[in-house]
Amino acid sequence: MEKFTVHTGRGAPLRASNVDTDQIIPAVYLKRVARTGFEDGLFAAWRANDPDFVLNREAYRGSDVLIAGPDFGTGSSREHAVWALQDYGFKAVLSPRFADIFRGNALKGGLLAVVLPQPVIERLWAIVEADPSAPVTVDLVEREVRAPGLTEPFEIDDYTRWRLMEGLDDIALTLRHTDDIDAYEETRRSWLPVTR
């Protein structure tokens, strides 16, 4: 996983709540077995049908920080939603509230999902709508989001922050504790089911 420390880019204002993972990437794109190349599926229906959709607007071409309304990433557990956002070029998503699974998937894969209060999101929308070229910085080191005239702290637990800043693979970290897993398995109840 790529390390994440500080990213400065441009913001895309997505003024919608409840952006579910079926909108982020429709199920038809989930049939693939590869891990990359999902950018064509990102917001496929909205990009195809709505000329005013933010990613269809010239001014937001190349933006890489998505600024979304509350309950972003609800619905399906498909990690393809994270991959599609990353493959399209997004480095971070800002929202007042994320669905648990989406946020977990994002932080596993190095897409920074940052929770900010609704009023802050609204100020960010105003900033990037007034000036689509305004720099938006997501600073994981300082746990801060910055834009012209705006500096706001955000919360992220120390462990996740460390893992993202080091670009560490969770599985490798867990495999350091194989002894603990072996020991736990000795204590499992004998009647627990097996699939054989």
Binding site: S77, R78, E79, H80, V82, I101, G104, N105, K108, G109, D157, D170, I171, L173, T174, L175, T178, I181, E185
Partner: peptide, 20 residues
């Protein structure tokens, strides 16, 4: 609970998950 593909891989490899 539902998990993403990275976690699927994690469970396949370790039969565990780090969870808060």
């Amino acid at each position: 609970f539902g998990i993403g593909t990275s976690q699927v891989e994690h469970v396949l490899a370790t039969q565990t998950l780090p969870m808060t």
